[in-house]
Design a protein around this nucleic acid. Structure first.
Length: 575
RNA sequence: CGGGGCGUAGCGCAGCCUGGUAGCGCACCUGCCUUGGGCGCAGGGGGUCGGAAGUUCGAAUCUUCUCGCCCCGACCA
């Protein structure tokens, strides 16, 4: 392709509204432009990258036995009402009415549509199992889209759904997809990690996310430094600390109430009393969807994992109670709450068990208790794993490991769904005995457009993007120093033709620009191989081949150039 | 949804406080020059100052409303 005929509006300066590097570079290098909040145009270079990713995904999904189809982007409300998600999904679901005032939504995901499709098409166990996938634009009206392609409202996704007669077969396919995803992300040239994950709004009861490791990632993940345990912090289990081994007969110092005027947060009180935050017990009051107020207790240096709390409470929704509700329900203001004398149901984190010489609120204004002894002074309704895992926690799976934390960009997620949708929507089959049974389901997503951003977060330098060979919009950039020079132009045109005839994806910078401009743009756009054609080299019959990633440069004879470039590409794409 | 910030030429910004009829850099166009890392010189085009209403002789500038975009928060007692 000719640069002069391609829309590549590069910018010298960072766009004012971009925060993360992938967003800045995608805009600066002429790949995307924002149309509205979280919605972007994909310019020709971006589309080529997307097509590359799609192709890898297609090849691997097909190889794994899945079949591609295409479902509608809009869905009638009735299907979402059947699954119950019309009410549950909230404002992220973009809803609208057609001309006849019928409710519709734009699909943020397609469990309802695909389940409907399958229930109308499948009767017998003989027709199962199968796995259907599509690559399509999705719309989620995110509360806060940001970071360019990393969290858009409109985005391109590969979503797959598998259907099975039984749990074992569904789990087999789940594993098949995990392996497939590993191949896909490896082929994309990314450093990633599969982690255990919460199932969120999709539902189901087993899930892994595929996280591309990057500092700018929105997700926090933990991984064991010894075994292969890794999880999203939302999901990470925390093992009960080993029992401290305490002497029951030993007396604790007497409980004491101290004045802490205006000191509300753990940090403030700790500073004021000159006591370490680990000695504190935080008391947080949550309201459940059934209207109950519940106190959750965690150590001062820990944080509540509300997914865990929600699960322990068996609640559908929980939220921190506002000040007025807390005052009414607990009889004290936030900041001075404590378990002693509290009339609410209390769930305490495992680490609170057996704490001594602890500090808690005194359930009255401007006062805290010190020398609190959990076993002596209060008894929670239950102890449970409530807190977020932190760096340094012991691994929940192996004996010797400890957890370390990383940031990640979630580019894929696999779910074992079970029969949640098939039961709700009546997707059943007849087994060999003629009994009607619900279909077991799994679902598997990959954020195609997010992957573009993730790849850049992981592959860039001060000058611009460095595309992995497998994702690059072009494999080779031909850069004639002066395209108006006859000898250079003829050499460039000839090489351009030959490379194309040899199946190499090549972009020729045929613009009448100064060399400096072309070099800067070349680095910015990030095509992995650059061939520079200059007068000096051509006099010797040579061109210059340069790697974008490591800047390694070699002069090679024009006559060998096609062979050499093909060899480099072959090697790079195999690696 | 709460808080903050910003909307002035394609991009990045100044001007606003203290009202007087819009400017800088880059980009763009023309010519000359130059050609291995965002050249040089000369000339030139382009803006309903996000929108609406108000105050005023006069509004980019002051007031009100509104729309858009960005950031932070929307759990830590």
């Amino acid at each position: 392709m000719l640069w002069s005929k391609t829309l590549i509006p590069t910018l010298k300066e960072d766009p004012a509204d971009a925060e993360v590097i992938s967003h800045k570079l995608l805009v600066r290098a002429g790949f995307i432009k924002q149309v509205s909040r979280g919605v972007y145009d994909y310019f020709p270079l971006a589309l080529r990258v997307i097509r590359k990713i799609e192709q890898i995904v297609r090849e691997e999904m097909n190889r794994a036995g899945a079949q591609e189809l295409l479902m509608p982007i809009s869905a009638p409300a009735e299907l979402w009402q059947e699954s119950g998600r019309w009410e549950m999904y909230g404002k992220e679901l973009l809803r609208f009415k057609d001309r006849n005032e019928r409710d519709f939504c734009l699909g943020p995901t397609h469990e309802e549509i695909v389940t409907d499709l399958v229930r109308r098409s499948v009767r017998s166990y003989r027709e199962l199992p199968f796995n259907l996938y599509q690559i399509q634009t999705k719309f989620r009206d995110e509360p806060r889209p940001r970071f360019g392609l990393m969290r858009g409202r409109e985005f391109i996704m590969k979503d797959a759904y598998s259907f099975h007669t039984d749990v074992e077969d569904c789990r087999r396919e789940y594993d098949n997809m995990v392996q497939t995803y590993k191949r896909i992300f490896t082929r994309c040239g990314l450093s990633f990690r599969p982690v255990e994950a919460d199932t969120g709004a999709i539902g189901g009861n087993q899930s892994h996310e595929f996280q591309v490791l990057a500092e700018s990632g929105e997700d926090a993940i933990v991984s064991c430094n010894t075994c292969d345990y890794a999880a999203n912090v939302e999901k990470a289990e925390v093992r009960a600390a080993r029992p401290a081994g305490r002497d029951i007969a030993e007396e604790s110092p007497q409980l004491e109430k101290v004045s802490t005027p205006g000191k509300k947060s753990v940090a403030e009180v700790a500073e004021y009393l000159k006591l370490p935050v680990e000695r504190f017990i935080k008391t947080l009051v949550f309201k459940t969807d059934s209207g109950e107020f519940v106190a959750a207790l965690v150590r001062g240096d820990h944080e509540i994992n509300d997914l865990k709390l929600r699960a322990v409470l068996g609640a559908r929704e929980i939220a921190l109670a506002d000040e007025a509700s807390v005052a009414a329900a607990a009889g004290a203001m936030p900041g001075f709450l404590g378990p002693i004398g509290l009339k609410l149901r209390m769930i305490a984190d495992l680490s609170v068990h057996g704490m001594r010489a602890a500090v808690t609120g005194a359930n009255e204004a401007d006062a805290h208790f010190i020398q609190v002894d959990q076993e002596r002074d209060f008894t929670p309704s239950a102890f449970a794993d409530l807190r977020l895992a932190v760096s340094g926690d012991p691994c929940p799976r192996c004996d010797s490991g400890t957890l370390e934390t990383h940031r990640g960009i979630e580019v894929g997620q696999v779910f074992y769904l079970g029969t949640k949708y098939s039961v709700a929507m009546g997707a059943t089959y007849l087994d060999a005995e003629g009994r009607e049974r619900p279909i077991e389901m799994g679902c598997y997503g990959i954020g195609i457009s997010r992957l573009v951003a993730a790849a850049i977060e992981q592959n860039h330098d001060a000058n611009g993007i460095i595309w992995p060979f497998s994702l690059a919009p072009f494999q080779v950039l031909l850069l004639p120093i002066n395209y108006k020079d006859k000898a250079i132009r003829e050499a460039a045109d000839k090489l351009y033709q030959e490379l194309q005839q040899n199946g190499v994806e090549v972009l020729l910078d045929d613009r009448d620009e100064r060399p400096g401009v072309k070099f800067k743009d070349a680095d910015l756009v990030g095509i992995p191989l650059r061939v520079t054609l200059g007068a000096k080299g051509l006099e010797k019959g040579c061109i210059e081949l340069r790697s974008r990633r490591d800047s390694k440069t070699e002069e090679i004879p024009v006559a060998d150039s096609v062979t050499k470039i093909r060899a480099v590409l072959t090697q790079a794409l195999q690696a």
